[in-house]
Amino acid sequence: MEHNDRKDGRDSKFEQDDLAEFEQKLRFALQHRTAPMGMKARVLATARERRRQKQHGWQWMVQRVAASVVIAAIAGGAVAYHQIEERRKGEAAREQVMLALKITNKTLNRVNERLTDDNQ
């Protein structure tokens, strides 16, 4: 009986020691400590950077799409302009050929008339 009482007393002492150690650790953990110099600024800067990167990703994509659209529009416009200009020049050349042929035919007609008159 006495033996059992002694054993219970020992267990209780161990528990108290454990509790005291835990309390000490807890106290130490909860102890107010001053943040290192510039910690707040660094945290805020990191958060700002993350936010900026997130926004920048979207902006970059939008910019790329917009740039592609602009480049495609410029290229398309250039091709269309080139085709229109080519067509215009071609039509002008065609008109020149027709004019040259008209003058040629007119001149040949006159030559023919002149020669016919001379023969008569």
Partner: peptide
């Protein structure tokens, strides 16, 4: 004054625009 000067390249270029798609007989012959 009327002046028309068409070299070989210009004639070939003009010929490209004389297509017979429109069925223009004159264009085809020229």
């Amino acid at each position: 004054t009327t002046e028309v000067t068409l070299d070989k390249n210009m004639l070939a270029f003009a010929a490209k625009f004389m297509d017979d798609k429109d069925g223009d007989k004159d264009d085809k012959q020229v």
